[in-house]
Simulated scan of single mutants.
Amino acid sequence: MLPDGPQQRQGGPGSGLPLGEVRQECRGLARAAVRLDSPAMDSLLQQTMQAHGLLIAWEEVMAPTLHAVGRKWESTDDRYVEVEHLLSWHVSTVLRRAAVTAPLVSAHVAPVVLACLPGEQHTLPLEALAAGLAERGLPTRMFGAAVPAEALRAAVGRSGPKAVVLWSQSRSTADNTLARQVASTAFGLKGARTTPLVLLAGPGWSVRAATAGMRRPLGLREALNAISALYAEADAVVAAGETTPGPAAPASTSLC
């Protein structure tokens, strides 16, 4: 499962939210959220990202605050819904900003496709992953919420990704058949076609959902490391090929 972040103990004074033992930045964000203080939220989120990077910001500040707000409105007859909406908007804003402003190591390598399954509207975890990949210089194609099955298959076939991350928040949106179809989507030159690694992300997937060509990461950190390892392996293969003499490739194999 992706991005849920660490679970915190109940009870934390200062904001009216059940925060538990958390970083000071988390308490500050919670207080600003309850006050509906947009400038303070934006400033604190930006400072946290710059000071600690994406992983710490998500796992120890953003996710715990979002969880606390969610627990609050669930236990108080839908109070604090406005807090959750405003906080989510600001978290999304800072994550997207990070994803689009980070410099890429190379714009000419296969991307990572990020998509919510049909009917799935929860995008924040994928936005966190996109920001984390951008921080590592890896290219992404973010397709967002509720991507229709046909559009998802077309996007994978046309972009030729190294990995595809499929987010499902609930069992009702997890689609094992679609995941297998994506995992079997082949692209590339005839005779050297390849398929992407599919990461089944989110609590909607069962523990046995991952089959051949799939993985089920248990958090943002694991997903980032798994994807990064794919690119590291590819770089190692390229480096080995460059140092090993061999016949020149025919001009007809160019991907230009």
Rank of each mutant, 00 (worst) to 15 (best):
Leu230Asn: 05
Val207Met: 07
Thr177Lys: 14
Leu126Trp: 00
Ser75Asn: 09
Leu230Gly: 07
Asp235Val: 10
Lys190Met: 08
Gly28Leu: 05
Val164Glu: 12
Leu66Met: 11
Val81Tyr: 04
Leu152Arg: 09
Gln24Asp: 07
Leu104Glu: 09
Val165His: 05
Val22His: 01
Thr185Arg: 01
Thr65Glu: 00
Gln169Met: 15
Val94Ser: 10
Ala51Gln: 01
Val83Thr: 09
Arg35Asn: 12
Arg215Asp: 09
Arg208Ala: 15
Gly132Leu: 01
Ala179Val: 12
Asp175His: 04
Arg79Lys: 15
Leu197Asp: 06
Thr93Glu: 07
Met49Tyr: 10
Ala223Lys: 06
Arg97Met: 14
Pro118His: 06
Pro118Ala: 08
Ile227Leu: 03
Gln46Asn: 07
Pro3Met: 06
Ser184Gly: 13
Ser75Ile: 06
Thr93Phe: 00
Met142Ala: 05
Glu233Leu: 15
Val61Gly: 02
Thr253Lys: 06
Arg216Trp: 03
Gly20Ser: 15
Ala130Gly: 11
Ser170Phe: 10
Arg96Ala: 07
Gly14Met: 02
Ala155Ile: 08
Ala134Gln: 05
His67Gly: 12
Arg221Ala: 13
Ala249Cys: 07
Ser184Lys: 10
Val237Ser: 14
Arg136Ser: 11
Thr173Pro: 08
Ser75Thr: 14
Thr48Lys: 01
Glu242Asn: 14
Trp205Gly: 11
Gly160Cys: 13
Pro250Val: 02
Ala102Gln: 07
Pro161Val: 02
Val207Cys: 15
Ala102Phe: 11
Gly246Trp: 01
Pro13Ser: 11
Ser184His: 15
Leu220Pro: 05
Gly246Asp: 03
Thr194His: 11
Thr195Gln: 15
Ala154Val: 10
Glu242Ile: 13
Ser106Asp: 13
Val100Trp: 08
Ala223Gly: 05
Ser254Tyr: 01
Ala154Pro: 09
Glu242Lys: 14
Val34Gly: 06
Leu197Lys: 07
Ala186Leu: 13
Cys116Asn: 02
Ala57Asp: 11
Cys26Lys: 00
His52Gly: 01
Ala98Asn: 05
Leu152Ile: 12
Ala32Gln: 05
Leu114Ala: 06
Thr194Gly: 08
Ala249Pro: 01
Thr253Gly: 03
Ala110Lys: 03
Pro139Cys: 04
Gln24Val: 00
Leu104Trp: 06
Asp77Thr: 04
Gly213Gln: 04
Glu84Trp: 02
Pro247Leu: 15
Gly70Arg: 11
Ala151Phe: 02
Glu233Cys: 10
Ala226Phe: 01
Arg215Tyr: 08
Asp4Asn: 09
Ala30Thr: 05
Gln46His: 06
Val61Lys: 00
Gly144Gln: 11
Pro161Glu: 00
Gln24Lys: 00
Ala128Leu: 02
Ala102Thr: 14
Leu54Glu: 06
Ala149Cys: 13
Ala223Pro: 03
Ser170Cys: 14
Thr76Ser: 13
Leu2Met: 02
Met62Lys: 03
Pro64Met: 09
Arg31Pro: 12
Ser159Thr: 12
Pro18His: 07
Thr48Arg: 14
Arg96Met: 10
Arg153Ser: 09
Leu197Arg: 02
Val91Lys: 10
Pro118Arg: 03
Asp235Pro: 04
